[in-house]
Design a protein around this nucleic acid. Sequence first.
DNA 1: GCAGAATGACAAG
DNA 2: TTGTCCTTCTGCG
Length: 283
Amino acid sequence: MPEGHTLHALAGSLQHAFAGRPVAVSSPQERFTQGAAILDGRELHEVTAWGKHLFAEFEGETWLNVHLGISGKFSVSRHHLQPEPDAPHPWPPLRSPSVRLRLLNSEWVGDLVGTQFLSVLTPDEVVAVHRRLGPDPLRPDADPELAWSKLSTSNRSIAELLMDQSVVSGIGNVYRSELLYRHRVDPFRPGREIRRTTWMSIWHDVVALMPLGVAAGQIITVADQVEHATAELDATGTVRPPRRQYYVYKRTGDPCLVCASRVRTTVVATRNLFWCGRCQRRR
DNA sequence: GCAGAATGACAAG
DNA sequence: TTGTCCTTCTGCG
């Protein structure tokens, strides 16, 4: 269920399981066997995420680029099979018949299921994908000014702009609604009418929120859960996922947690937007 | 801009 | 069985 936090968590587990060693890469599906063959047996150097894209750098300046789409999953788990004497790697059974790509070493297996966005790239092509993406709040080098320069000159609504991956990357439908609520911003306000201080506080907020999502494997936006998870992350480096709770996301018709007026919904940028008409009234 | 497709988990009926 | 979806690309008017 992929917004940016999912991809960064995944990059971390792939890095942990596979980096620094050669990886057996294979695909049972004909349309991906060629790409898999290119990567097969190379050492994996580093796995990173940018927004909702995953990049795995293999030796020989060859990159795997994955986008999970709406329903993709990349499961990483330990296996306990011993290598056959005449084969370099064991072959744990496929859990799903629709595995697109499998990464394997002597300890770990990673199965990618359910996405059509899967490609092997050259360094130049990787740069080209990066250039299409706006700053990612989870990357230390991210520059909110790049987003501001697009946002502050646009007539499109802030709700639409937050979902545009070339403006900011990594924010999806849940973070969009929840961020706008947290900052009491009218979702239909055009980008050019958003105050700079408002944008900067949204940015700093999402920079603080998304690491909680990475650590918990779940989007956390409600104040007391945020407070608790932040303390837990600081103290232990991990976050146990709390009960799923949102301010407005998927709460159509339910009372706003602050003012009790009913949460509303409508489609913006092809996705359901949720907001409180009273708390997020234009000021 | 808008529908449709790709694609799989899960909930609702 | 059908509908929904934490996504994005293509193709049409």
